[in-house]
Design a protein around this nucleic acid. Sequence first.
DNA 1: CCGCCGAATGCTTTCGTTTGCAATCGAAAC
DNA 2: GTTTCGATTGCAAACGAAAGCATTCGGCGG
Lengths: 329, 329
Amino acid sequence: MTGVTLSDVAQRAGVSRAAVSRTFTQGASVSAKMRARVEAAARDLGYSPNLLARSLTTRKTQLVGLVSNNFHNPVFLQIFDLLTKGLQDRGLRPLLVNLSDETDPARSVQLLRQYSVEGVILATSHLPQGFASAFRDAGVAVVHAFGRPTGQTDVVGIDNVAAGAMAAQTLLARGYRHVGFMGGPEQASTTQDRLAGFAAAAQALGGVVSHSFASTYSFEAGRGEMTRLLSAPRAEAYFCADDVLTIGALSAAQAAGLRVPDDLGLIGLNDMAMAAWANINLTTIHQPFDAIVRGAMDLMQDRFANPDRAPQTRLFPCHIVDRGTLRPL
Amino acid sequence: MTGVTLSDVAQRAGVSRAAVSRTFTQGASVSAKMRARVEAAARDLGYSPNLLARSLTTRKTQLVGLVSNNFHNPVFLQIFDLLTKGLQDRGLRPLLVNLSDETDPARSVQLLRQYSVEGVILATSHLPQGFASAFRDAGVAVVHAFGRPTGQTDVVGIDNVAAGAMAAQTLLARGYRHVGFMGGPEQASTTQDRLAGFAAAAQALGGVVSHSFASTYSFEAGRGEMTRLLSAPRAEAYFCADDVLTIGALSAAQAAGLRVPDDLGLIGLNDMAMAAWANINLTTIHQPFDAIVRGAMDLMQDRFANPDRAPQTRLFPCHIVDRGTLRPL
DNA sequence: CCGCCGAATGCTTTCGTTTGCAATCGAAAC
DNA sequence: GTTTCGATTGCAAACGAAAGCATTCGGCGG
């Protein structure tokens, strides 16, 4: 234990405990002389206020839950980086929750509530049933990043239907006619929405559309699924709903002796850092992580200030990043 | 706010506050009848104890700081995954701290102390001066994962000197004679130790050794450094001190038209998930992340129980994983 | 029926802070 | 030298829960 408390400082400085408290609380009334005196004593003793005790009376913990269920896809490291930096800049502390193996998500809700988090940022494509509402009911600000707009909770992300359409338009504009969609898990809302947008746009433009799903958003699943696809009549180009999946598909294509993009076109989604690596060099749809993450934090803080406002959705535009897996216009 | 407190439950159940407290604290004396009565009331009201308030009297927060300065290398996502799951299983909560852009590390120390974390796990190759000792002095259990043994703090990781030697022995056994070391930042202890072990072992076996450093542990740095190396007389094989670096080097070699492993051998270190991807397929030294992470948590909890024991070091053995970037024996 | 004793329960203080309220201070206005 | 009034200060009561201590309960042997 550090052990040194406000009382110790007060005694040392020969002032009341309230005086010490005031010099350490933003915007309280203290004279310059008093402040100097207290600060000197505090420095001598190495005092710093106990935030947990403070939170008891202020009802503010500065704690926010950061929950994710995907610790395998490297994009999430980028997301954590942006998120942790951003939260630190705003004076908030992230309590990290890994939902991967959690059989009972209610436990995580309970847990975060017990720690009195003020807000929760859900960074997950798919969300356990009733998760968001549990927090809402408990009065904690919750925002779902990378989620599907529901009107029930704050959501920030991209328009996945539009992104799917953008992929289709790009493929057809490059002269591919038989185009395929390779999704992640079929029940993920991102997969569903991207497929819907992709199929509709491709058909509207006269394309021939097929689709299939990989079991997870992972390299192996993408590689396995593409290997399967290549053993039958196949499309000329595929839109893979995630970069990691796309890299898996790319690997399968190379293993099958196909040249990309001449024999087979591929377009991904995310534009994760790795997509730009020279030996991967993915053509992909850029998802603006920084804007989304910033938006999530903004929305959360906005709800701190105004807990009863209506749920809000913020979607950010994507754009194509042209690299080496699609033939040029 | 959830708002429902112990007093509310006590009133509802028509018992004293102490009774409620006892039914929720491990190993307190309550009759079955009382317990049932309180639990019913608690359920009705949706009560769960406020851990922050509890921590005030118990002096236990179950909070541990998880600090890292590398949110770019994908291995850290694997590490976070293991760490968060492990901590959750042990009933501990990770408070995540991103040191990347932190100009004043003392701020992070202060911060974690203010939240009364019971322990800190440092997952960083390099560590700011005085960081570990600051925690130690504050009486919080600190363990440095992936660090260099100092005798001052608990350290868990691998023997980097031995790992370097293992790399050298492997290269020479495969018939490479002029061998190079490509490190990360020169001041990183991991870089220094791996180089020392590598150079000594290679020379002892009659190899010709050269070395150089990439500016960071990143793809771009590895690729840039290898590109530079290839523009001059070069070694026959390189030991790159990290997988991401190795992938960068591999990319540079491919871009230069070299065949790996025929024209150039490469061996990495870490065996991150990506190293096994078929289109990367790195021969590398496996670092046992799961054992290291588990060891870190064990050591931390061990110090909870016994705060004054001497600092301890736990190093785990590595082994070669043979894939496609080194020619066979 | 009485006394005894361990188990259950309630009372009260405490943990480290903040904050409303009342008392005090100091200087400007008279 | 008083008044007066705003800015400082101290006092004491929260905040939500744990735990030591004293009290009460219940069942047992006698």
